[in-house]
Amino acid sequence: MKFVIAPDSFKGSMTAKEAAVAIQVGLQKIYPDADYELVPMADGGEGTVQSLVDATDGDIITANVQNPLDETVTAFYGVLGDGQTAVIEMSAASGIQFVTEETKNPLITTTFGTGQLIKDALDRGLRRFIIGLGGSATNDGGAGIAEALGVRFLDENGQQIARGGAPLAQLVKLDMSHLDPRVAESEFLLASDVTNPLIGETGASAVFGPQKGATAVMVAELDAALTNYAKVIKTQIGVDLANTPGAGAAGGLGAGMLAFTQAKMQSGISLVVAATALVTKSANADVAFVGEGAIDFQTQYGKTPMGAAQAIKQASPDAKVIGLAGYVGDGIDALYDLGIDAVFSIVPGAVDLPTAMKAGEANLTRTAENIARLLNTK
């Protein structure tokens, strides 16, 4: 019997690796001699670095960088087991967790620190990057990243503009003469399922600005600034990003990466599946487990359990794929025709959320053991 165990994290309760181990512990009580393939999963958002490092026996690297408010903090990124690929969650340096209700202000917040992480990885000889676009506190179009890598953003007087979203309204000229030459030697893959364009009613400012502290007046100011940013980029680089799907991800960071690097946008789960070699590891699987904190009708739309299940089925079409979650919502019937064969909640009864999260590993182990007992035909 071969089990493939490929869960995402159960946020607030377990990392993806901890969830995978908890499932294995339960299964081993019934199948002590089975083959186990543990492949922690993620979708490009929070937890992606840890999942990919765990799945590939990589390393976590820390570095002192500037947070969105230009304060020095310690952030992190991962180096995969291949020793060649850096995995960076932009939120690690430029995330919403660095601001409060009082300090969040997308007019001034910057992605400069994420660029510093990229530069640190370049200094270590890495030339392949997976960048997770999610959880940002910024709306600067990725200009901060580009500045950290050597691009100068100049006003009408040839002076460097300030960092943040609002100063992009003053941008007149791009000076790329000092862009780190190693950027051109590198491959950048952007992990995001966001398809919003850079500007307009569905753009970065209008859709995501309010959750970062933008008022209606600020949204209009930010959108005008990004419109000017896109105009300058189109005029001087020849890349039209205003309405490019995904350019609005992470406060327009998608646009900056597409403009100043040879970046390519891909779905987060697809990148993780490829980086972890999940399809290869799922060959000859009999039973597989996927999961995360909640499984419901939204799971079918590119969520981690769905992507993992389909990758497993690609390798082993006859494998039974079982979904485990703390919360099982409405609409899961749709999943049964898409790769997940059964879904189980791990919560034993009516309990409050803190209690359920604290007991997550024990609940996951118990549920896996009970499923194993059902599978065991001896």
Rank of each mutant, 00 (worst) to 15 (best):
K281N: 11
L278G: 00
G246L: 01
T261M: 07
A250Y: 02
G251C: 00
A250E: 09
G252W: 09
T280N: 14
A283H: 12
Q262Y: 12
T261R: 00
A277S: 14
A259S: 03
A259T: 03
A275W: 12
M257Q: 02
A274R: 02
V232A: 08
G256V: 07
S282D: 13
I269F: 09
I237F: 09
A249W: 06
A283S: 13
S267V: 04
V273C: 09
D286I: 05
V239F: 08
Q262D: 15
A275Q: 15
I237R: 06
A247D: 09
D286V: 07
A274N: 06
F260C: 04
L253N: 09
V232Y: 02
T235P: 11
A242M: 03
G252S: 13
A285R: 09
V279A: 00
N284M: 09
G251S: 03
G238C: 04
Q262C: 12
A259L: 02
A263T: 08
A285W: 08
D240K: 04
A242G: 03
T261K: 03
T261V: 11
L258G: 13
A259D: 01
G238L: 07
A242P: 01
A283G: 10
P245Y: 06
A242L: 01
T235W: 13
S282Q: 11
T235A: 15
T261A: 07
A277K: 08
A285T: 13
L241W: 04
Q262T: 14
K264W: 10
S267Y: 04
M265V: 05
A277Q: 14
L241P: 08
N243Q: 15
F260T: 03
L241I: 08
V279W: 02
A288M: 02
A249S: 11
D286Q: 14
K264R: 15
M257W: 02
Q236V: 14
Q266V: 14
N284E: 13
T235I: 14
Q266S: 13
A275H: 13
L271Y: 14
T261G: 04
T244C: 02
L278F: 06
K231G: 09
T244W: 00
L253M: 15
V287S: 08
L258E: 10
A283W: 12
G268Y: 05
T244Y: 00
S267D: 10
L258R: 10
T276Y: 13
V272R: 04
F260N: 04
P245C: 05
L253Q: 09
K281W: 07
N284S: 11
S282K: 10
V232P: 05
A250I: 05
V232R: 00
I269P: 09
M257S: 07
G268M: 02
V272I: 11
K281I: 11
I237Y: 08
I269Q: 10
Q266R: 15
L271P: 10
G238T: 06
G251H: 00
A274W: 08
N284F: 09
A255C: 05
V279M: 00
A285G: 11
A283L: 13
L253H: 06
L258N: 12
G254I: 00
Q266M: 15
A242V: 03
G256R: 02
Q266P: 12
A277I: 07
V287A: 06
A259G: 03
A249R: 02
A247P: 06
G251E: 05
A250W: 01
L271D: 11
